[in-house]
Design a protein around this nucleic acid. Structure first.
Lengths: 175, 175
DNA sequence: CCGATATACCTCGGGGTCGAGGTATTGTCG
DNA sequence: CGACAATACCTCGACCCCGAGGTATATCGG
């Protein structure tokens, strides 16, 4: 997740940790803040896996900076992930948004469309949120205003996204 | 998160682990599946903290069941959490939905309204998802269809939820 | 009566995340 | 000139989650 967001940002241009952090904060930070204790070990792991290299430059503003460059293996890992996201990347909105943020890096519109279709399939599945004993509750049966809020918002979200998915899939097919 | 969902479900009625699991799967399982290796240790932790007790009953259908009962301390912990959710519970949609699923357990409408207002404040904050170098990008500046999809869906979601929040807050004030 | 399935629970290792804390440099304001 | 903020990076322990695997009982079809 974090791992792939890092690769995605570095694909555009080499960054040093602090800049990378700003990008990550913009992408998901308002939802779920990202701490140094998460970011720097993640960078180390990626370096250890050979997906990126660090080049130390004398600090232009402050302490010496480690500019991070994606390796060919790093680019390959990014493409692999984008072509075949895990189920969690499809179902969890936060992760899904991260996939979308970098999906343009895939060059084949057919590959992009395939990913969008997986999300569409997921959103089209009926989901029941609540149970009364063993019986799943329908939206109409729920009297609690907060729980019906959950259903209302969830449905509005899927509707908006399904519409967008159809539009974008149509657009990809004309390409 | 999981912890509080467990307390929330047990508040309604005592359940054994397997039933609890079904409830949890219905609530968030289609987004993010919950594994045994997560659930049972969580139950153990709650028991160790004195928030629930386990009563072993001879299995009615299969293996002996451990029926889980909320203790007074468990009920108190649930109320504390609902009255003052963490920032992450407010900002992360998955967690927020869990808060909403159990918010009816608070008996004071003023307390419920205060929680809804925190979510409203969060959704009203302007958020920029993407940067070009150091400059935050506006929705109009984004040409990538996938990234503009992120913005479009995010905006549709907040709009729907803001409307619902206003309606529900009005409803709570008449009570 | 055998195997499959559903019920029901548990452990363990690997791995990721977090917050708290630490180090060091440069620029800015009073 | 001294304090402070911003830049820039790093470590550590605590904690939580996950998947893989294991145990055991009841029921039902063939």
């Amino acid at each position: 997740m974090l791992k792939l967001a890092i690769l995605g940002f570095l694909y555009d241009r080499p960054l040093h940790g602090y800049e990378l952090r700003r990008h990550l904060v913009a992408l998901t930070g308002h939802i779920r803040p990202i701490s140094d204790g998460t970011l720097y070990p993640a960078i180390k792991r990626l370096e250890a896996d050979g997906l990126l290299t660090r080049e130390t430059e004398p600090g232009t503003v402050a302490a010496p900076r480690h500019t991070l460059h994606l390796t060919p293996a790093g680019r390959a890992a990014l493409f692999d992930w984008l072509r075949a996201p895990e189920d969690l990347d499809i179902s969890d909105e936060n992760r899904w948004f991260t996939v979308l943020a970098f999906l343009r890096h895939l060059d084949a519109p057919a590959d992009q469309a395939a990913v969008l279709r997986r999300r569409l399939a997921f959103l089209s599945e009926p989901a029941s949120f609540f149970y009364e004993g063993t019986r799943p509750l329908r939206a109409e049966d729920i009297t609690d205003p907060f729980r019906s809020g959950v259903l209302l918002v969830a449905r509005a979200t899927s509707q908006a996204e399904i519409t967008w998915l159809h539009d974008t899939l149509a657009l990809l097919e004309t390409t």
